[in-house]
């Protein structure tokens, strides 16, 4: 009960931080509000029994914050505070209400197959213990020799998935390097290139 209450409070904190990030006038305070939301998410992971997610979330949050602050601090924000476009806001609110109605219907069928499971009772917790999560939990120690089931799934059962993830990171870093590099951008930089 208490842990659920803390999770609820932290989600409300995340929503407030996200609203500040979206609506504040200063860009630097917006970026810092996003950082607050990310650190709150890592605390939620820690409370919800996912320490394997809390530590990468903190690491990723620090890197994101450094990148965004580095981008915002040295550049002047000349964007005008334009009046809100009512049509687009209406479209967003309409889509949002459709989302919420869908959630209510999906979560309304508690325990039924196909809906979102009720909070605190995951799919694997049901009586039928043939689900893949239960199989991972019971077999992980002897199959992979890993005490940490999440790492066993990530690095053994689904190792190709992790390889694809590493490929995505590599391509993203390569793309950022190509976009930001100085060589080859101007004509007079040609003599710098050896070929």
């Amino acid at each position: 009960m208490t842990i659920e209450f803390f999770i609820l409070m932290l989600i409300i904190f995340m929503i407030i931080a996200a609203l500040i990030a979206v609506e504040s006038i200063d860009l630097l305070s917006a970026v810092i509000a996003v950082g607050a939301a990310g650190f709150a998410l890592s605390v939620i992971d820690l409370l919800a029994g996912a320490p394997d997610l809390a530590f990468p979330q903190v690491l990723v949050e620090v890197i994101t914050l450094v990148l965004l602050i580095r981008m915002v601090m040295t550049r002047r924000d000349t964007s005008r505070q334009t009046s809100r476009d009512t049509l687009r806001t209406a479209v967003v609110l309409l889509a949002g209400s459709v989302f919420l109605v869908a959630v209510f219907f999906a979560a309304g069928g508690m325990g039924m197959s196909g809906g979102i499971p009720p909070f605190g009772q995951p799919v694997m917790g049901s009586a039928a213990d043939t689900g893949v999560s239960t199989q991972y939990l019971t077999r992980c120690a002897e199959d992979t020799g890993a005490a940490n089931t999440v790492m066993g799934i990530l690095l053994d059962y689904r190792a190709y998935d992790t390889l694809g993830e590493a490929t995505v990171i590599f391509v993203a870093i390569l793309g950022g390097y190509v976009v930001l590099r100085r060589v080859g951008r101007k004509k007079d930089a040609k003599e710098v290139e050896p070929s």
Partner: peptide, 14 residues
């Protein structure tokens, strides 16, 4: 993460 949460659940570490 919330969909996978169980009431009073421990982290999936042996």
């Amino acid at each position: 993460v919330l969909v996978g949460y169980r009431h009073g659940g421990t982290p999936p570490i042996l």
